[in-house]
Each structure stands twice: as structure tokens, then as C-alpha cells.
């Protein structure tokens, strides 16, 4: 069943052009010149209950705008979003408060915790804001404290927490009221390897046992590989790809790369033909061949018999990272 349904969602920013110079602020109030930018351009998608979806795209692609539309912070220019739930579907910007109880939102760059107060106080405040009944608060907090190992710094003022501790606190605050839907915006940015793994493990666990649906934006594709089965790739405000992670790799990187090290004397030049494949010399002396997914790699091995001895051979799977890198590069060049 679709939890989020997005239809023809469009957001055009219209900004009054700021007037520079003396009394610029006052003059800006009365100016009529407008600047328009289309941040989200008629996108459609839906997300089912229990999914973990990676929402990817280069900077300025329209990711944050989409998230802000989905969470009801912004009003769209046109199109609609519906979030299903008990008591019927909710249009985020029309019924903000109702939606707020169904979603948890974590921004990696910006904490929702009360900066000057001990962490535990943020939890009691969140519980009050979201009307969490006392027994449920107690049991949820106990679970989160254990899962996120919050006890050592539960009574420390938030401003004294490390980034990783703060993020654990933010995750707990976002899930304290059991929202069925969780938005994560760059949840691992700036964290060290261990802290990243804690965050990923926790999100995975919440999704598996808590049936929490997750929409995740990130620049760290390891997050996506670890957590997501599905990817939404957007650019210039449009959906470029919507489907499985494997599918993305198969579609945008239809070959694998084979690295070969030869024995004995090395051939001259930077190119080498071997069994019909053309290879390029790497700086460590190995040769790199691109082999189509349907092409027989063994021809490479067989060809090695005629003159060159292969000492070492490895196959590099195209991963998400290389594919996305390739896509972003195309965008910049195109």
C-alpha cells in the first residue's frame, strides 16, 4: 500500500529581486522585479509502507525542496502529495500539525535538540509536543536508550555532545513518538566510520522491526548500499531514475572492468589489445580492460597464451559510487 503518493509536484521559487544600495531593504519591499527558479518540476512517485528509499541527486537538484514539500514546510506551486494514515490521507501543507505526528525528521546539519539543556530534557519536551502518553514514553525511551547507547551522555547539555552523540540524540528524538515515516537528510554527514555504522544499524533496525518507512537523502553512497533497496535519482527537479539499486548499476554501467598484471617484459605504449579487448595502462603497471556484461571474460584469459603471461587478474564490479559519479559528471559536462 502506498504511504506517500506524489503527483505532478512542482515548486517554483519566486523571489523578489533584492535591490542593492542605500535603503535596499526598504526598496526591496516595493520592487516588482522577480526571479524565478524551477526547483521541482512535475515529479511523480510513490513510496510503499516499509520501504527504505534513497533520494539522490547532486547539489541543487531539488532534493531539499522535495523534502520540505513532503514535510509540509513549503507550499508547492502545483501538484499534490498525500501521506496515508489512520483517519485518511493528509496533504502535508494543508494539515501540517496532523502530518507532523506521522513523520520524524532528522537533519544531519541542524539539530532539533535544545542546545543549552541536558539531552534528556529534549526528550521530555518532544514527548510533550507530540502528546506521547507517559507509559509509551517510558518504554520508547528505554528502547532507544539501549539501541543508541544514550546513557553515558543523557544528562549532558547538548552543546557539549560530539557530533556522533548529537546525531544519536536527534534520531531518538525523531522516533520517540513512533512516527511511521522517517525523513533523514544527510544523517551521516561529518561522522566518523563507527558513528556512521551506528546510525545505519539503527535505521536498518527501525525499518526491520519497527516497520518504519524511510526516505533518505545522502551524499554518502555507502548509506544507500547498506540501507536502501530502491533509489530515486533526481536532477534539475526531475526524476532521472526510480528503481532498484542493482538496476541503476546495470542500466548506467553495462560493463565491468578487469585489471590484469602481466609477467615478464611489459609491452610498449599505453594501449594493449588482448583477445579483442582494448586495455589501457594504469599507473601501477596494470592494464585495465572494459568487458561488457554479456561478453565472455575467458577470451581474455585465452588470449593471454599468445605471448603474454597473466600473473594476476581481478574483476572490478561497477558500484553505485562509480555510476553516480559518472552520472554527475555527465551532468556537469552536458
Amino acid at each position: 500500500m502506498a504511504l506517500i503518493t506524489v503527483r505532478q509536484l512542482t515548486k517554483e521559487y519566486v523571489r523578489t529581486k533584492a535591490v542593492q544600495g542605500r535603503f535596499g531593504t526598504l526598496r526591496t519591499l516595493f520592487t516588482r522585479e522577480k526571479e524565478r527558479t524551477l526547483a521541482v518540476d512535475h515529479i511523480d512517485f510513490s513510496i510503499d509502507e516499509g520501504e527504505v528509499v534513497g533520494y539522490l541527486g547532486p547539489n541543487g537538484a531539488g532534493k531539499s525542496t522535495t523534502i520540505k514539500l513532503l514535510t509540509g514546510v513549503l507550499w508547492p506551486t502545483s501538484g499534490t502529495v498525500e501521506v496515508a494514515g489512520p483517519g485518511g490521507p493528509v496533504v502535508p501543507w494543508r494539515d501540517r500539525q496532523n502530518l507532523a505526528r506521522r513523520i520524524g525528521v532528522v537533519f544531519g546539519q541542524r539539530s532539533q535538540l535544545w542546545w543549552d539543556l541536558p539531552l534528556i530534557e529534549s526528550f521530555t519536551l518532544v514527548a510533550a509536543l507530540y502528546d506521547v502518553p507517559a507509559p509509551r514514553y517510558t518504554s520508547n525511551l528505554a528502547r532507544l536508550r539501549k539501541l543508541l547507547e544514550l546513557d553515558p551522555f543523557l544528562h549532558t547539555p547538548v552543546r557539549q555532545l560530539s557530533l556522533g552523540q548529537r546525531m544519536r540524540g536527534d534520531l531518538a528524538a525523531a522516533l520517540l513518538y513512533d512516527p511511521p515515516l522517517l525523513y533523514l537528510d544527510e544523517p551521516t554527514v561529518g561522522l566518523d566510520v563507527l558513528a556512521k555504522e551506528t546510525v545505519r544499524g539503527f535505521v536498518d533496525e527501525s525499518n526491520r522491526s519497527g516497520r518504519t518507512t524511510v526516505l533518505l537523502t545522502t551524499h554518502d553512497l555507502a548509506d544507500v548500499e547498506r540501507l536502501c533497496r530502491r533509489i530515486l535519482l533526481i536532477d534539475h527537479g526531475r526524476v532521472l531514475y526510480d528503481g532498484a539499486v542493482d538496476g541503476l548499476v546495470a542500466r548506467f554501467a553495462p560493463y565491468q572492468e578487469v585489471l590484469v598484471r602481466l609477467d615478464g617484459d611489459q609491452p610498449d605504449g599505453d594501449r594493449l589489445d588482448l583477445g579483442g579487448f582494448s586495455g589501457e595502462r594504469e599507473h601501477d603497471g596494470r592494464w585495465r580492460f572494459r568487458v561488457g556484461r554479456d561478453e565472455p571474460v575467458h577470451r581474455l584469459l585465452a588470449a593471454a597464451g599468445d605471448g603474454w603471461q597473466i600473473r594476476e587478474l581481478s574483476v572490478v564490479e561497477s558500484n553505485l559510487e562509480s555510476v553516480v559519479k559518472e552520472l554527475y559528471r555527465e551532468r556537469r559536462d552536458g
Partner: peptide, 12 residues
């Protein structure tokens, strides 16, 4: 500083 975003995300 973006605090209004957070206020709009809360049921209050």
C-alpha cells in the same frame, strides 16, 4: 538560521 523549518515540522 533555519529554526522556522523545525517549528513548521512540529505539531504546535
Amino acid at each position: 538560521e533555519g529554526q522556522l523549518d523545525r517549528m513548521l515540522l512540529r505539531p504546535a
